[in-house]
């Protein structure tokens, strides 16, 4: 490093010190054009981004309280298991809708074939199948509606 560079380093460091101490606040002090540009940059930094006072005791305490509150909120959010979030029908109405659609589809799939095959040839078996299918379908739909109702209440 040349002596010239060292002098410039020292000059700019001293200039920054004086600017930050409030001894210089308007004009550049050097006759070197490059140095003037660097001094202007320092003044621009000082003017635009003035150094900040640290938060006082009261503000520090307030910030700590808000930090703890935020951590508590985040903890509670993290604790809710995935399946519970999934079945939270108030925040996920689409899942609720899916449950209802699934119930209707299951009912349709179980009952429609029974109606077709239970007709002419073997009315006794058809009726029994029909009743059993209705019971199974109704049970599943009832179960789904129960799940929907339980999670909706929470």
């Amino acid at each position: 490093m040349s002596q010239h560079d060292t002098n410039q380093d020292n000059h700019l460091a001293d200039f920054a010190d004086q600017v930050l101490q409030g001894k210089i606040n308007t004009s550049a002090s050097s006759s070197d054009a490059d140095m003037v540009r660097l001094e202007e940059t320092i003044l621009r930094l000082k003017t635009t981004l003035p150094s900040t006072n640290a938060p006082d005791t009261a503000k520090t305490k307030q910030m700590l309280v808000r930090l703890k509150a935020r951590m508590k909120r985040e903890e509670e959010t993290e604790k809710i298991p995935f399946w519970k979030k999934l079945f939270d029908f108030q925040s996920n109405p689409q899942v609720g809708m899916l449950v209802v659609i699934a119930a209707v589809l299951i009912l349709a799939v179980i009952t429609v074939p029974s109606l077709e095959f239970g007709g002419g040839n073997n009315p006794t078996t058809g009726t029994a199948n029909n009743n059993a299918n209705f019971l199974i379908g109704g049970g599943i739909v009832g179960l789904l509606l129960l799940v929907y109702w339980i999670f909706r209440r929470k």
């Binding site: 490093m1 560079d5 060292t6 410039q8 380093d9 020292n10 700019l12 460091a13 920054a16 540009r37 660097l38 202007e40 940059t41 320092i42 930094l45």
Partner: peptide, 16 residues
């Protein structure tokens, strides 16, 4: 200290 002041000047130049 010299290296720090040199780094400071190069940093100001880069910002400029």
């Amino acid at each position: 200290l010299e290296a720090t002041k040199s780094l400071f000047r190069r940093a100001v130049a880069a910002l400029r």
